[in-house]
Simulated assay, not measured.
Amino acid sequence: MALPHFQGIFPPLVTPLSSPDKLDVAGLERLIEHVLSGGVHGLFILGTTGEAPSLDHNLRKELIQRTCRQVRDRVPVLVGITDTAIVEAKEMSRLAANYGASAVVLAPPYYFPNSQTELVEYIERLAPALPLPLVLYNMPTHTKTMFELDSLQRLMEVENIIGFKDSSGNMLYYHQVLSSLSIRPDWSVLMGPEELLGEAVLFGGHGGVCGGANLCPQLYVDLYEAARWRNIERVLDLHHRVMRISSTIYRVGKYGSSFIKGLKCSLSLLGICDDFMSEPFHRFYDVDRARLHELLEELGVTVSNPYPASDDPVMTSLMR
């Protein structure tokens, strides 16, 4: 069976919650249809933007089941299986396969730092045991471990590993990864930070895992297509719009969780899903929520109902 090759925009879906251990099911359904209506090429659940490390395993299982059932093979669904325990990673991958996911995504186990030798040997043992193809996820700010280039090139020899998502923000490293594709030309290399999406695709990357595509999916799809077809003028215009999102709604609040809070609060203001955060984090208080409301209006996003979620989100020019 041919291994999949992923290209395009794969939103790292936020996880709509109504309490610490309960999904906002109606919100999840609206969110999935919202991003699919923007023309995205796939979904990535249980990633950083989805608050995966803070979610209990039963909730993760329910999220996988509901997402795959609703998507119904319209686009590929990628499922994060990163865990500190290899047994849990294997179990989550088995569930993902049973529910119809297309691939699983794995970052280095967090908490204890890994040596490169240990990391490579861990993945070499794990990948062949997985029932789905594997995409590696480089997130050194959160895992304390970087996939060094030599390690990545060695892992390219593992057949079941089919791609790489890089969230390091290091473009020199990203170009070195692209240069290594001579080893595995079938690999997909996806950019994490959306601020680098245009550049990444212009130089040969295959797409992006863009958090802002939860909010404005078509904007990121359009940027990907413009970069893919080398329409530089349009890339510059769309990149500017992406940077406006990055420099506004991701900057409300003081802490590293602000970008997730900003996305969830924006989606709540648009009536798509609840903005409840997994503990120990909490949703924006009224002052920050009001500020985000103002910023969305400035960005050209009409907020139809600024507090309770409604069934009729109103999206305007920025999302086209």
Rank of each mutant, 00 (worst) to 15 (best):
A103H: 04
V104P: 01
T141I: 02
E121I: 03
L106Q: 14
A103V: 08
P108Y: 13
K144L: 12
P133S: 06
E148W: 00
D166R: 10
S167H: 03
H142R: 14
N160V: 08
I162A: 03
Q116D: 15
M156A: 12
L106N: 08
V105W: 03
A107M: 05
D166Q: 10
I123V: 15
E148P: 00
P140T: 07
K165P: 03
F164H: 07
V135T: 06
I161R: 09
E118I: 09
F112P: 10
E118G: 15
Y137L: 04
I161E: 06
E121L: 14
K144T: 11
P140W: 10
S115A: 10
A103Y: 09
L126A: 13
V104L: 00
L130F: 08
V105R: 07
L132F: 08
L155C: 06
I161Q: 05
P113E: 06
F112D: 01
V105G: 07
A129G: 02
V120C: 12
K144G: 00
V120R: 14
P128K: 08
E124L: 02
G163S: 05
P108S: 13
E159Y: 04
Y110M: 12
G163W: 07
S168Y: 05
T117A: 14
I162L: 04
M146F: 04
E159L: 10
T145M: 11
D150R: 08
Q116Y: 03
P109L: 14
L155A: 04
M139A: 08
M156T: 01
P131Q: 13
L132I: 06
A127I: 09
P113G: 02
L106G: 04
N114F: 15
Q116H: 11
L136C: 03
Y110S: 14
R154I: 09
P131A: 11
F112N: 13
I162E: 02
P109V: 14
Y111F: 15
T143P: 02
M156N: 01
Y137I: 04
L149T: 05
L155I: 06
T145I: 01
A101G: 07
Y137Q: 07
I162D: 01
E121M: 12
G163Y: 06
V104R: 02
M139S: 04
L119Y: 09
P109T: 13
P133I: 11
A127L: 04
S115F: 10
I161F: 06
Q116L: 12
N138M: 06
